[in-house]
Design a protein around this nucleic acid. Structure first.
Lengths: 337, 337
DNA sequence: TTGATCAGTTCACACATGTTG
DNA sequence: ACAACATGTGTGAACTGATCA
């Protein structure tokens, strides 16, 4: 009786039902279980729905069924291409299974917490996170709600499930390349003040590998994560101050590595003759810049696929809590080392 | 009676209501209209809600109130930093107004249509689109639902509202820079098979400006939009074949421009002595690469702010249908021209 | 096809208290 | 002293649109 106000979505299942001369349930069925409805009625309902511009109300459906076809993914950044393939993998796989992927950006664990709340509030089918560092309150609420959650780009000790690759193994592998090629004064660029294990795990491995090789591991510079390309020149300057004989450097991302290459260009340094440069992530620029960057290529697309697959399986009742999948990585050798 | 199945979000308003010894309505009020409930009860309810890890169900609230605090944005790509500032602007502004921003990726107008359907299905408060080329069916449904819609990065003839800058004016401005510096054999790189006015508007202006200056405008190459950096080398090769005396080139994005710079480096061509290179978009790489790229800097952050502001205002009842806002642009002059 | 149901919100109203003419 | 009227808090019924049995 109380006609509240002009609603936005005026077209409801009722309106098409009466326009088509069937019950609302029949309309519902034509959308969710087309095979339960006779071809003829189905077509009539679809036609009228299209004419009236009907879009089923997820909110109502979600509420009634307790289910959702939306998966929420939270990514730290869209500043560069690092998550591009990952998101593509998620999106394509979600579509295959009849799910929708929506994204939220969160560059700090505090924002991540807020994004998690939003997704829980929306009652999504599952949540994909990057990394395994989160606010305690966020972990707490994820555990309480028992929503399917995948942490990606990282392995081990998951809230629920995880898919990633071993940064430790990748760090070793890239150092092996440099050592095999005879570099002996290897520098390391990392990030300071980052909470992310994706980055912080690398330095200890760097130190232990060099120690085992009987080499010094003093050439370390921690850059500001916000700097992007700009971190390269700063880091190179600092490392050269510490050890002028530096002959190779490994970077936290290809972006930083590209920044180092730009700086080498300005100094007139030949790469890799004067200094070898290794990147990380196989960003698009790695293969296009000259010299091409030797880099760690995570299987980002597969990681995205796997993340969504695990969420969908769990939403369908499979019990793969605690599952951890390693999607591996490759070392791409190019001219920079 | 029918206890359906283990619901995901077990904590409801009812459970905190009984735990706090108040009615569900009081719980609802403490969240939505805190001033309507006594300080003491408010705190008790809040405490219990926090303890139980309660997250209000947007789906239910949305359904009951017909309102939403979620804004949906559809962006074509996260492959590079072009939309980074834009999204930041939207996100920050949404947060200021107490709204949430969620993203969907759509690289074709077909995918965009699907994303629009998803957002309408979610009954979001409004939708932000990039560009003004859409599927007819998508336009149709947006008009029917009368949802607040902003088209950005583009001006004119909006479905509902628009915020952007003039690609025409920007193309003229960047050509003025090149002409003023004496370049006379100017090449143009555009995109082929792109539906987007953001790009297709540029070529006619290029032609007319050069014609007015009494110069030829034959040096045109249309690249594959998917190519990124790789489009640069291909385009340069083609343009040199058409006109070996080419002395400047304007690119559709800074990424393509960077690709051109890489290729110039390989050829040993000095920039801008042998050839001047102009980019578009003020991507992060533009200021970091050597030589720095002369480029068009749209006010992307402001565009994002403005988009969300317009949606929020409309959601609050302001009638700014048909409004078009020009956020302008700057030409950033660097060493590449 | 019908009604009950999901988890909230709107709206109208109850109730206690205080203020006013 | 009393009705009349605000005011501040809390409650119950009806309702949202789609789904399930």
């Amino acid at each position: 009786m109380t006609k509240r106000r002009e609603q936005v979505g005026l077209v409801t299942m009722h309106s098409i039902a009466s326009a088509a001369g069937v019950s609302p349930m029949t309309v519902s069925n034509t959308f969710r279980y087309p095979e339960r409805v006779q071809e003829e009625t189905r077509q009539r309902v679809m036609r009228i729905a299209a004419e009236l511009g009907y879009v089923p109300n997820h909110a109502a459906g979600n509420l009634a069924s307790g289910q959702s076809r939306v998966i929420g993914a939270i990514i730290p950044s869209i500043k560069n291409s690092s998550f591009y393939k990952y998101v593509r993998g998620m999106q394509d796989t979600a579509a295959e299974h009849g799910y929708e992927l929506v994204l939220k950006l969160a560059d700090t664990i505090c924002h991540e917490h807020a994004a998690i709340q939003t997704f829980i509030g929306l009652r999504v089918a599952g949540i994909a996170l990057v990394g395994n560092e989160h606010e305690p309150a966020a972990i707490d609420i994820l555990q309480k709600t028992a929503l399917p959650v995948v942490e990606s780009w990282v392995l081990g000790n998951p809230i629920d499930m995880a898919v990633g690759y071993s940064t430790t193994a990748a760090t070793k592998a890239i150092l092996d390349v440099l050592l095999a090629r005879g570099y002996r004064n290897i520098g390391f660029i990392g990030y300071e003040r980052t909470a992310s294990h994706r980055f912080t795990e690398r330095l200890p491995i760097f130190r232990s590998v060099l120690a085992q090789a009987g080499l010094s591991s003093d050439l370390v510079h921690l850059a500001d994560e916000a700097d992007g390309f700009g971190a390269g020149p700063k880091a190179l300057e600092e490392l050269c101050r510490i050890g002028p004989r530096i002959d190779a450097v490994i970077c936290p991302t290809d972006i930083v590595a590209a920044g180092v290459l730009f700086e080498c260009g300005r100094r007139g340094w030949k790469v890799p003759d004067r200094i070898a440069v290794a990147g990380w992530g196989d960003y698009e620029i790695a293969s296009e810049i000259t010299p091409g960057l030797t880099t760690v290529q995570p299987n980002a697309y597969e990681m995205g696929q796997q993340s969504v697959t695990m969420i969908v399986e769990r939403a369908r009742g499979n019990r793969n809590r605690g599952r951890v999948v390693d999607t591996g990585f490759q070392i791409i050798k190019r001219a920079s080392t």
